[in-house]
Amino acid sequence: MGVDKLPPFIQPGERVVLFDGVCRLCNAWAKFLIRHDRRRLFRLASVQSAEGQAILAWFALPLERFDTMAYVEGDALFVRSSAVLRILAQLDWPWRGFGLLRICPRPVRDWLYDRIALNRYRLFGRYDSCLLPDPDHARRFLDG
Results as ranks from 00 to 15, higher is better:
Met1Pro: 10
Gly2Asn: 12
Gly2His: 06
Leu6Ser: 11
Phe9Met: 11
Phe9Tyr: 15
Phe9Asn: 14
Ile10Gln: 10
Ile10Leu: 14
Gln11Val: 08
Glu14Gln: 15
Arg15Gly: 00
Arg15Gln: 13
Val17Leu: 15
Val17Ile: 15
Leu18Ile: 09
Asp20Gly: 10
Gly21Met: 05
Cys23Pro: 04
Arg24Phe: 09
Arg24Thr: 12
Leu25Asn: 08
Asn27Asp: 13
Ala28Gln: 13
Ala30His: 02
Ala30Lys: 05
Lys31Thr: 07
Lys31Asp: 14
Phe32Gly: 04
Phe32Asn: 08
Leu33His: 08
Ile34Asn: 01
Ile34Lys: 02
Ile34Thr: 04
Arg35His: 13
Arg38Val: 12
Arg38Pro: 02
Arg38Met: 03
Arg40Val: 00
Phe42Gln: 06
Leu44Ile: 10
Leu44Asp: 10
Ala45Ile: 06
Ala45Thr: 05
Val47Pro: 05
Gln48Trp: 09
Ser49Tyr: 04
Ser49Cys: 03
Ser49Trp: 05
Ala50Ser: 11
Ala50Gln: 09
Ala50Thr: 09
Glu51Ala: 15
Glu51Gly: 12
Gly52Val: 10
Ala54Lys: 08
Leu56Ser: 05
Ala57Glu: 13
Trp58His: 07
Trp58Gln: 01
Trp58Asp: 02
Phe59Gln: 04
Phe59Lys: 02
Ala60Pro: 00
Leu61Met: 07
Pro62Gly: 12
Glu64Arg: 14
Arg65Asn: 13
Arg65Gly: 10
Arg65His: 14
Met69Arg: 00
Ala70Cys: 07
Tyr71Cys: 03
Val72Tyr: 03
Glu73Val: 06
Glu73Ile: 03
Leu77Met: 11
Ser81Leu: 03
Ser82Arg: 15
Ala83Trp: 13
Leu85Thr: 04
Arg86Met: 07
Ile87Asp: 04
Ile87Ser: 01
Ile87Ala: 05
Ala89Val: 00
Gln90Ser: 13
Pro94Tyr: 03
Phe98Cys: 15
Leu100His: 05
Leu100Asp: 00
Leu101Val: 02
Arg102His: 14
Cys104Asp: 00
Cys104His: 01
Cys104Gly: 06
Cys104Ala: 15
Cys104Gln: 05
Pro105Gln: 13
Arg106Gln: 14
Pro107Phe: 06
Val108Glu: 03
Arg109Trp: 06
Arg109His: 09
Arg109Lys: 12
Arg109Met: 10
Tyr113Phe: 11
Tyr113Arg: 06
Arg115His: 08
Leu118Glu: 11
Asn119Phe: 00
Arg122Met: 06
Leu123Gln: 14
Leu123Val: 09
Phe124Thr: 11
Phe124Asn: 06
Phe124Gln: 10
Gly125Ser: 04
Arg126Tyr: 04
Arg126Cys: 06
Arg126Val: 03
Arg126Leu: 12
Tyr127Gln: 12
Tyr127Ser: 00
Asp128Leu: 09
Leu131Cys: 07
Leu132Asn: 04
Pro133Glu: 05
Asp134Pro: 03
Pro135Ser: 04
Pro135Leu: 04
His137Tyr: 08
His137Leu: 01
Ala138Lys: 07
Ala138Asn: 02
Ala138Pro: 01
Arg139Pro: 00
Arg140Tyr: 02
Arg140Phe: 02
Leu142Ser: 11
Asp143Cys: 09
Gly144Pro: 14
